[in-house]
Design a protein around this nucleic acid. Structure first.
Lengths: 215, 215
DNA sequence: AGCAAGTTTGCAATGCATGCAACTTTTGCT
DNA sequence: AGCAAAAGTTGCATGCATTGCAAACTTGCT
């Protein structure tokens, strides 16, 4: 199967890089543990630093804002989306690239799904985190809007691509809710997720056609 | 024309209430001035308090989070939307109520439009404010989603109403951008705003029908 | 070993947010 | 008017996140 790592050159990491990566992962892991135990607001940077055995300053070094401790992979996931949207071939629509991205990033083993569920429970129990997440999705909306605008030959700031981006991210939100509400095995979760995605794309496609007919 | 005040009983405010209201408005006004002059992050609560001639503690009293100083009316506007959606008559769809709300709340005189433009410039020049705004729109999305779910006989957490809510708010976002980008007179701004809204509703309507046909 | 570059850390300062208690003003009642 | 309760304002103190800066420490390389 195609994954992100297929396209990324794997440099042999030096000791320095490996250590840095390990520190980063340790901090993120213990932070998630603590958030799950006591809640996000109730956990201080200092406590995270203590359990990760680093200085508080180091935590802030790796994660300039506290919220980033929860959304540790959103950045790379969205980078990947951007790459797929921008480097898609001429016969591939934005919708195709988007769907392929979702297929590639969907949690597919139990461990990954468990981590996702843990993150989602933390996020959904804290308003600041939900707000922060909405801020993150803004970027994805814009990426999608830009790609859709290209497909449709519309200006980037046109209403239609923006609505498509927003509706798409609403679908991904619904998908995230599913991840936590249900207690499904990974395969079943994937199936339902793709069902949601296809439903969203049908909606969007019909919306676009409806608007083109009216114009 | 119908406006919010038509349906709200105007109690004769006592001195206490009037004073409170005046203090609140003074704080909000000077805060907006300062934000426009120096920027949001660059202005401290203390400076706002000084110019408003109150204690810093009082500012935090009226506006528990700094961001609220910019979004002073969003709360009541969304209250009004909620009221309109929930108290609509049987023959009025969610879309009807929504459109009526937009017509009622659109800035229609120069002074109001100027204030809106000032707010929007401040918001768009600061990332924290944009994020905060996205958090606020979550509520509106949910109100709309709930009303649309009722109209369509779907569960509240169904994908379709959620996408409709998201797409609708994307349209309002685009509308807000228009308010600042252009230098239009109020009447022209209103006209373009309604054009956008109708375009959004065409998109959404077609999307819903497309999905119903496929189901 | 020893130097240069890159990391981690401690320290200090700033600013937002909040609980609490003291203080002032307004209100309602006699 | 006079007074007591209620409501609003303020000062004080604390906790926490975030950031700049410089010192201390590690690693990579010669």
């Amino acid at each position: 199967m195609e994954t992100a790592s297929d396209t990324v050159r794997e440099e042999p990491l030096g000791l320095r890089e490996r250590k840095k990566l390990r520190t980063r992962e340790t901090i993120a892991r213990v932070a998630l543990e603590l958030f799950a135990e006591r809640g996000f607001q109730e956990t201080t940077i200092r406590e995270i630093a203590e359990r990760a055995d680093v200085a508080p300053r180091t935590v802030s070094m790796y994660f300039p804002v506290k919220e980033e401790l929860v959304f540790t992979d959103h950045g790379v996931l969205f980078d990947e989306l951007e790459r797929r949207l921008e480097s898609r071939s001429a016969d591939e629509t934005a919708a195709d690239a988007l769907r392929a991205w979702i297929v590639a990033v969907l949690a597919d083993d139990q461990a990954e799904l468990d981590k996702t569920r843990c993150q989602r429970q933390i996020i959904e129990s804290d308003h600041a985190l939900r707000t922060y997440e909405r801020g993150l999705t803004e970027r994805a909306e814009q990426l999608i809007a830009a790609a859709v605008a290209t497909d449709l030959g519309l200006p980037t700031d046109d209403l239609v691509p923006r609505m498509v981006g927003a509706a798409t991210m609403a679908a991904l939100d619904a998908l995230a809710d599913d991840a936590v509400d249900e207690d499904l095995p990974p395969a079943e979760y994937r199936r339902r997720a793709l069902e949601l995605v296809d439903q969203a794309m049908t909606f969007i496609g019909a919306g676009i056609r409806g608007l083109q007919g009216a114009a």
